[in-house]
Design a protein around this nucleic acid. Structure first.
Length: 483
DNA sequence: TTCTGTTTAGGCGGTG
DNA sequence: CACCGCCTAAACAGAA
């Protein structure tokens, strides 16, 4: 199988793209005026894939001549400013946080502190963008904050991670984790306290969690817990990814079949109690149906991660990826990112675990790369007009971005979105939560100076941004034909 | 006494 | 079928 480096892929991609869309040729030059309105990421923040109209994937977009919009429009992205209230995700890896149906977790609008992820079929109409017919099934929602019957589809490890992130503290106590879980998941408020045993068990047994002894001058019981930086690479986008995933696990057909299977299972068991009383004790139903439906253990994100190596090798099929995504195997961008989930929970993504808080919580990590080698993490600030690409890697975070650099990064971010420049990024061993500066290779913050390229998105970085689309890795042949 | 933390064991489901 | 990940239960010890 031919393996192309990312620059090669980018060039080939560019050639093919320009061959297909020669009108984009003029966009890449520096002289090309940039439409600021096109740099807004509001559409992305509100984007729901279900709003996408596949019919718009082809053909010119008269009102939007820029390549970025060109690209976006072909993807069926809604225009900036359109209302596409997708919901925050609650990704899970181990348990996968995957919606049980093609929808996205949503939160109660009134939530201020932390809202339980819930899922719903998200097909909000976008003005000017006909809805994609979703499922004939009625919308269903699971509000984990108020629904005590449905067990959240998150592994304990993920719950712990979520609690750690939400706490905004570099280290949390066991009781903090308990409180966060019970506060955000009604199920655990009503469940037998044995789940706390499982939490403790998970903390102790899971190498991803590291115990930090309480200082002698610190009052209280027990120690603190944090994510072990050595295992931070298992913590991607706020979720654990452990379960083995086959390379073609998420082929279009299988993904669709599984989705349907999950849908069937969900609709048959929605709002049914996942446990039963056995001998006065509440017992979870051990049926396979419940296991599959109530605790899905797979997610597009996992498949995405598992396939990132293939992405880097060029082993992907753009068309099939888009087809699959737009076909419903993935509902929204947010489904792929737990950051937004926590943001929606009122819990800003705590990128830095040691006090360096990001300027805003309206951002997300875009990761790409081979988890076993190097990962590129890009933090996209989606808070609005201001965007920055900071590579704050926990304690080994890059030097705090100064104002001029922020401006530079914003420009670069804008340019990325316009496809004119490579996203400033770091390639380094994934260490989201490095505890000590010396525990990981620290890459100096430096600008990536490259010639502007006339490509919609550089493959390396653009895929980081649009990684959600690349959950489906298909045969090389189709890529080859595209290249 | 309660909470915290560790360890062991078994079951289940997914994956290779 | 073996292995792995996850869950659950239980026992036990130590600290507050």
């Amino acid at each position: 199988m031919p393996v192309l480096s990312s620059p090669d892929m980018a060039n080939k991609f560019k050639e093919k793209w320009l061959a297909a869309f020669p009108e984009d040729q003029a966009i890449g030059s520096d002289s090309a005026p940039l439409d600021d309105s096109l740099t807004s990421l509001h559409w992305l923040q509100n984007f729901s894939i279900l709003n996408a109209d596949p019919e718009r994937l082809v053909g010119p977009v008269p009102e939007c001549p820029s390549s970025q919009h060109h690209f976006v429009k072909r993807l069926g992205f809604p225009r900036a400013g359109t209302d596409s209230p997708s919901s925050p995700p609650a990704g899970d890896t181990a348990a996968a946080g995957m919606p049980l149906y093609p929808g996205s977790p949503v939160t109660s609008g009134s939530e201020t502190t932390a809202a339980p992820p819930r899922f719903s079929i998200c097909a909000h109409p976008v003005p000017g963008y006909p809805q994609i017919p979703v499922q004939a099934n009625p919308p269903v929602e699971v509000d984990y904050k108020t629904n005590p019957k449905v067990k959240p589809p998150y592994s304990y490890a993920s719950l712990i991670c979520m609690a750690m992130q939400a706490s905004k503290q570099p280290k949390v106590t066991l009781s903090t984790i308990y409180n966060w879980i019970t506060e955000n998941f009604c199920y655990y408020r009503h469940a037998e306290p044995s789940w706390q045993n499982s939490i403790r068990h998970n903390l102790s047994l899971n190498k991803c969690f590291k115990k930090v002894p309480r200082q002698k001058d610190e009052p209280g019981k027990g120690g603190f817990w944090q994510i072990d930086p050595q295992y931070a690479d298992m913590f991607v986008n706020g979720i654990f990814k452990r379960r083995r995933m086959s390379a073609n696990h998420y082929s279009s057909s299988s993904a669709t079949q599984r989705q349907n299977k999950l849908l069937q299972g969900f609709h048959s068991t929605q709002n049914t109690c996942p446990y039963q009383m056995v001998g006065g004790k509440r017992k979870h139903l051990p049926s396979k149906e419940h296991s599959k439906v109530m605790r899905p253990t797979e997610s597009p994100l996992l498949a995405m991660e598992a396939n990132k190596a293939d992405i880097l090798k060029g082993d992907f099929d753009l068309a099939s990826v888009f087809d699959d995504v737009l076909g419903g195997s993935c509902s929204t961008f947010e489904d792929l990112d737990i950051n937004t989930a926590l943001s929606s929970l009122g819990c800003e993504m705590e990128v830095s675990m040691h006090g360096r808080q990001h300027s805003t919580g309206m951002g997300r990590w875009c990761g790409s790369g081979d988890m076993n080698h190097y990962q590129s993490y890009s933090y996209l600030d989606l808070s609005g007009a201001s965007m920055e690409s900071s590579m704050n890697m926990g304690e080994l975070s890059v030097p705090h971005i100064q104002q001029p650099l922020q401006r530079q990064q914003q420009l670069e971010q804008d340019q990325l979105l316009l496809g004119h420049h490579h996203l400033q990024h770091f390639d380094e061993p994934a260490t989201l939560f490095a505890e000590q500066p010396g525990e990981a290779v620290l890459q100096p913050w430096e600008e990536i100076k490259e010639e502007p390229q006339v490509i919609p998105l550089s493959l390396d970085q653009g895929f980081g941004l649009y990684e959600g689309f690349f959950t489906e890795m298909q045969q090389w042949e189709r890529v080859e034909s595209y290249l």
